[in-house]
C-alpha cells in the first residue's frame, strides 16, 4: 500500500517542481517589477510543498523524486502567462483531490488538504495578476511596430552561453542538494544542505534574470544529478561539483566585460568556494566517524616510546 501512496506523492512532487520552474521562468522574463516578486513568492511556497512531500515520502520509506512534469517554456504576453499558471494550479488542485480520496492515512490527507488550500489561494492570485496585466497592457500606449531585432554579436552569444551555463549548474545543484537534504540522516547536515540549496536557487534567479536582460532565454535544465543517500558519497559529489563550477566561473570571469555582471559572477563564485568549505567540514566529520567506528574493533595501539633527546620536529596540527 505504501508503494502506491509513495507513487502518488512522487507525482505531486513532480507537479510542484513543474510549477516552481514555470513560475520562476515567468517571473524572470518580467524583469524586476512588483508582479515578478509576487510570482516568485508563490514559487517559494511551492518549494515548501516540495519539501513537505519529500519528507512524507522518506517517512514512508521511499526516495523522493527530483524529476519534474513537462514545463511550458513558451513565451507570451504577461496576461497569457498568468492564465497558464491559473491552469496549472487548477490541474494541481484536481490531482491533489484525487490523491486525497485514494489515501487513507489521516496525517497525509491533512498534509494534502493544507497544500490544496495554498494552491487555491495561488489560483486566485494568478487570476488577479492576469487581470492586472490585462489592464496594464490596455493602459499602456500603443507599442510601435516591432523592428526585427539585430542578430546578436558573437560576444553577446558567448555572454549568454556563460550565463546559461551558470543557470544550468545552479539548477542542477539546487536539485542535488535538496535531494541530499531530504536523505541526510544528520539533522545538521540536512539543514545545511537545505540552506545551501536555497542559496543556489538565489544564484539561479540572478543568473536567469541576467540572461534575460542580455536577450537570451534562461535555460532552466539540469545536467547529471548525483542522487545518493550515502553521506560520504553525497559530500564528495557536492565538493566535486562546487570545485568544477568554481573553476568554470574563474576562467569565464575575464571574458565578462560588463562590470556589474563581473561583480555578480564573482560574488556567486565566492559563495561556491564557501559551500565547498562547508561540505569539506562535514566530509571530515563523516570520515572521522567512519574511521573511529573501524578503529573501535581494533586492539588499542601502544604509544611510541618518547625520544631520548628532545627535538622540536614538525609542529603541524599544533595550536
Amino acid at each position: 500500500m505504501n508503494e502506491k501512496v509513495i507513487e502518488m506523492l512522487k507525482e505531486d512532487m513532480m507537479g510542484e517542481h513543474q510549477a516552481i520552474i514555470q513560475y520562476l521562468s515567468h517571473a524572470y522574463a518580467m524583469g524586476e517589477v512588483p508582479m515578478a516578486f509576487e510570482v516568485e513568492a508563490i514559487a517559494r511556497e511551492e518549494m515548501r510543498h516540495l519539501d513537505w512531500l519529500a519528507d512524507a515520502i522518506v517517512e514512508l520509506g521511499g526516495k523522493p523524486t527530483m524529476e519534474r512534469a513537462p514545463v511550458d517554456f513558451s513565451s507570451a504576453a504577461v496576461e497569457a502567462q498568468m492564465l497558464k499558471d491559473v491552469e496549472l494550479e487548477r490541474g494541481g488542485i484536481a490531482q491533489y483531490r484525487r490523491h486525497m480520496e485514494a489515501i487513507e492515512n489521516e496525517e497525509l490527507r491533512l498534509l494534502l488538504a493544507r497544500i490544496v488550500h495554498d494552491e487555491m489561494a495561488h489560483q486566485d492570485k494568478f487570476v488577479a495578476l492576469a487581470e492586472e496585466a490585462r489592464q496594464g497592457a490596455e493602459a499602456a500606449p500603443e507599442a510601435p511596430v516591432a523592428q526585427p531585432a539585430a542578430s546578436p554579436s558573437e560576444k553577446q552569444k558567448r555572454l549568454a552561453e556563460i550565463l546559461n551555463q551558470g543557470v544550468r549548474h545552479e539548477y542542477t545543484v539546487t536539485l542535488q542538494y535538496l535531494f541530499h537534504s531530504f536523505m541526510a540522516e544528520s539533522k545538521e547536515l540536512a539543514e545545511e544542505m537545505q540552506n545551501i540549496a536555497v542559496n543556489e536557487m538565489q544564484h539561479l534567479g540572478w543568473l536567469a534574470e541576467a540572461a534575460e536582460e542580455v536577450g537570451a532565454e534562461a535555460d532552466i535544465n539540469h545536467t547529471e544529478l548525483v542522487l545518493t543517500d550515502d553521506p560520504e558519497e553525497m559530500l564528495k559529489a557536492d565538493i566535486a561539483v562546487e570545485r568544477e563550477v568554481t573553476r568554470a566561473y574563474t576562467s569565464q570571469l575575464p571574458e565578462i566585460e560588463d562590470e556589474g555582471l563581473q561583480t555578480l559572477v564573482t560574488r556567486i563564485r565566492d559563495h561556491e568556494i564557501y559551500h565547498d568549505a562547508v561540505f569539506g567540514e562535514f566530509l571530515e566529520e563523516v570520515e572521522k566517524e567512519e574511521k573511529a567506528a573501524e578503529q573501535g574493533t581494533e586492539e588499542p595501539k601502544t604509544p611510541p616510546p618518547a625520544p631520548p633527546v628532545p627535538s622540536v620536529g614538525s609542529l603541524i596540527g599544533q595550536e
Partner: peptide, 9 residues
C-alpha cells in the same frame, strides 16, 4: 576566496 579560487584554477 579570490586567492583560493586562483590557486584552485
Amino acid at each position: 576566496a579570490t586567492a583560493t579560487a586562483k590557486l584552485l584554477a
